[in-house]
Design a protein around this nucleic acid. Structure first.
Lengths: 126, 126
DNA sequence: TGTCATATATGTAATTATCATATAGCATAA
DNA sequence: TTATGCTATATGATAATTACATATATGACA
C-alpha cells in the first residue's frame, strides 16, 4: 500500500538557520575563539533554533579550507579534545560581504511583509 | 589538466528569491489574478532579482496541486494562450502561515545584523 | 524567412538540508 | 564493570532545493 504524501501540509521554514550559519559562526568567532560544540550551543541560544550538528562540523571544515577560519587542537581534561576555531582576515572580508547580502534579503522580506500588512491589515487603500 | 574550484570565491546569496517565491506569488495573486510570465515580471520588478522562469512555472503547478491556487486557460490574441492563476482560500491560509515564518526569519537576520553593527561599527562596548 | 518578445514547460546537474550513524573521553549511577 | 548521559568530533546517505539548459508555441515586424 502506498500513501500519497501531501506536500501542502509540510511545514515550511522560509529562512532556515542553516542558510545563515556561516555568517553566524563568523560573527561569534569575531568575538571569541570557540569550538564546534560550543558554537552549537551559542547558535541555539542566540537563534532559538536547533542546529544540525553534523552540518555544523562539516561547515566548519569547509570554512577552514576556504580560509575563513583556522583551527588548532586544544587539550580538554574534562573530556575529548577540542578543535578550536579562530576567524581569519579572509573570514572578516567574507563576513562583510555576507552582511551586504543579508541586508538585501532583509529588505526583500520587509517589502513582502509590508505588502502583506498593507493588503490585509489596513485594507487595500494605496 | 584539472582546475581546482575555489569555493571561497563563489558568490553567496543568503536569501535567494526562489526561497520566498511562494509567499511572493500568493501576495501578488491576492491583489490580481495573473499568469506565469506576468508574475515573472512583477517579481523581478518588486524584488530586483532575476527569477528562474523554469522553476517559476513548476512552482505554480505544484502550488496548484497543493490547492493554494487554481488555474484556467485564457485566450490571448497577441500571442500564446495564458494560464491564469487565482489564489484560493487554502492559499490565503498558507500565506498567513508563511508570513509568521518570515517574521521569524526577519528577526533572525536582524539579530545577526545588529550583532555585526555592535561588534564592528560601534566598537565592542556592551 | 529570420529574429525578437511573449508564453509555457521539461530535463538534468549542482548544491544544500535533513536524518542517521559512528567514535571517543570522562563522570556518575546501577 | 557495565550502562547511561553529556560533551565532543566526524562521516554516510538521502531528500529537497536551486541553477542552468533546452524544447516548444504564437504573433509581430523587418
Amino acid at each position: 500500500m502506498t500513501t500519497t504524501y501531501n506536500d501542502s501540509l509540510r511545514p515550511r521554514v522560509f529562512g532556515v538557520i542553516q542558510r545563515f550559519i556561516e555568517p553566524c559562526i563568523l560573527l561569534l568567532l569575531s568575538k571569541n575563539t570557540s569550538h564546534g560544540y560550543g558554537l552549537l550551543e551559542d547558535l541555539e541560544k542566540h537563534c532559538g533554533e536547533k542546529v544540525d550538528i553534523g552540518n555544523l562540523y562539516r561547515t566548519l571544515r569547509k570554512m577552514e579550507t576556504n580560509g575563513w577560519v583556522k583551527s588548532e587542537w586544544y587539550g580538554n581534561k574534562a573530556g575529548r579534545d577540542r578543535r578550536m576555531y579562530t576567524i581569519t582576515k579572509k573570514g572578516h572580508t567574507f563576513l562583510e560581504k555576507a552582511v551586504t547580502s543579508l541586508t538585501q534579503t532583509d529588505n526583500l522580506i520587509h517589502r513582502l511583509l509590508e505588502g502583506y500588512q498593507r493588503t490585509f491589515q489596513k485594507g487595500v487603500s494605496l
